[in-house]
Lab assay of single mutants.
Amino acid sequence: KEMRNAYWEIALLPNLNNQQKRAFIRSLYDDPSQSANLLAEAKKLNDAQA
């Protein structure tokens, strides 16, 4: 469930391009235990690109 939530949050971040989203989501599938960390990194990048 945590992975699914992280997937959708990443997919809906407005300032990431599709390539960036795909990279984060690929990492999510590679290591679901890192969901919270990956989401935090994606949000950080999203904010930096705002």
Rank of each mutant, 00 (worst) to 15 (best):
K1M: 08
K1L: 09
K1H: 15
K1V: 11
K1R: 07
K1C: 15
K1E: 15
K1W: 02
K1P: 11
K1G: 08
E2S: 13
E2H: 07
E2G: 10
E2N: 12
E2L: 04
E2V: 06
E2Q: 11
E2T: 11
M3S: 12
M3R: 12
M3N: 10
M3L: 14
M3K: 07
M3H: 13
M3D: 08
M3T: 13
M3V: 13
R4Y: 15
R4S: 14
R4V: 14
R4T: 15
R4H: 15
R4C: 15
R4W: 15
N5R: 14
N5G: 12
N5W: 10
N5P: 06
N5K: 15
N5M: 13
N5C: 10
N5H: 14
A6H: 09
A6N: 06
A6C: 04
A6W: 14
Y7N: 03
Y7R: 13
Y7L: 10
Y7A: 11
Y7I: 11
W8D: 11
W8Q: 14
W8G: 04
W8N: 13
E9R: 06
E9L: 13
E9T: 06
E9S: 05
E9N: 04
E9Q: 13
I10A: 00
I10R: 00
I10T: 00
I10D: 00
I10M: 03
A11R: 15
A11P: 01
A11Y: 13
A11N: 15
A11M: 15
L12P: 01
L12K: 14
L12W: 12
L12D: 09
L12V: 06
L12E: 13
L12A: 12
L12M: 06
L13E: 00
L13W: 02
L13M: 13
L13T: 01
L13C: 02
P14C: 05
P14E: 09
P14M: 05
P14G: 05
P14N: 06
P14A: 07
P14L: 04
P14Y: 03
P14K: 07
P14W: 02
N15R: 04
N15C: 06
N15G: 06
N15I: 01
N15A: 05
N15Y: 11
L16S: 00
L16N: 00
L16W: 00
L16T: 00
N17M: 04
N17K: 04
N17R: 05
N17G: 04
N17D: 10
N17C: 07
N17Y: 03
N17W: 02
N18M: 11
N18P: 13
N18F: 11
N18Y: 14
N18Q: 12
N18K: 12
Q19R: 06
Q19P: 07
Q19V: 11
Q19S: 12
Q19L: 09
Q19M: 05
Q19E: 11
Q19W: 11
Q20D: 03
Q20I: 04
Q20V: 04
Q20S: 02
Q20E: 04
Q20Y: 01
Q20K: 02
Q20A: 03
K21P: 00
K21E: 01
K21H: 01
K21M: 02
K21R: 05
R22E: 15
R22Q: 15
R22I: 15
R22N: 15
R22F: 08
R22G: 15
R22W: 14
A23D: 14
A23F: 06
A23R: 10
A23V: 07
A23T: 13
A23L: 08
A23M: 12
F24V: 05
F24K: 03
F24Y: 07
F24H: 03
F24L: 12
F24D: 01
I25M: 13
I25V: 05
I25R: 02
I25L: 14
I25Y: 14
I25G: 03
I25Q: 13
I25W: 15
R26A: 13
R26I: 14
R26V: 10
R26D: 15
R26G: 12
R26C: 14
R26E: 15
S27C: 05
S27T: 06
S27R: 11
L28A: 02
L28F: 03
L28C: 03
L28D: 00
L28E: 00
L28T: 02
Y29N: 14
Y29F: 15
Y29H: 13
Y29K: 14
Y29E: 11
Y29D: 04
D30S: 09
D30C: 13
D30H: 14
D30R: 09
D30E: 12
D31W: 06
D31I: 05
D31N: 11
D31T: 07
P32A: 04
P32G: 03
S33R: 08
S33W: 07
S33Q: 07
Q34E: 07
Q34L: 08
Q34T: 06
Q34F: 05
Q34N: 10
Q34W: 04
Q34K: 09
Q34G: 05
S35E: 13
S35W: 07
S35M: 12
S35L: 13
A36M: 07
A36T: 08
A36Q: 12
A36W: 07
N37G: 10
N37A: 06
N37V: 11
N37P: 08
N37I: 13
N37S: 09
N37W: 09
N37F: 05
L38E: 01
L38K: 04
L38I: 14
L38G: 01
L38S: 03
L38W: 06
L38A: 04
L38D: 00
L39P: 01
L39G: 02
L39Q: 03
L39A: 05
L39E: 02
L39F: 03
L39S: 03
A40E: 07
A40T: 07
A40G: 06
A40M: 14
A40V: 08
A40C: 06
A40Q: 07
A40D: 11
E41G: 05
E41F: 05
E41T: 08
E41I: 06
E41D: 12
E41V: 09
E41Q: 13
E41P: 00
E41H: 07
A42H: 00
A42C: 02
A42K: 00
A42R: 00
A42P: 00
K43L: 07
K43V: 09
K43T: 05
K43G: 04
K43F: 04
K43N: 06
K43Y: 08
K43H: 12
K43W: 05
K44T: 05
K44N: 06
K44I: 09
K44Y: 06
K44L: 07
K44S: 12
K44A: 10
L45G: 01
L45P: 00
L45V: 11
L45N: 02
L45K: 04
L45I: 09
N46E: 01
N46F: 01
N46I: 01
N46Q: 02
N46A: 03
N46K: 01
N46H: 02
N46C: 02
D47G: 06
D47K: 11
D47N: 06
D47V: 08
A48Q: 10
A48S: 10
A48K: 12
A48D: 07
A48P: 02
A48Y: 10
A48L: 10
A48F: 10
Q49N: 07
Q49E: 05
Q49D: 03
Q49V: 08
A50K: 10
A50F: 06
A50V: 15
A50Q: 09
A50D: 11
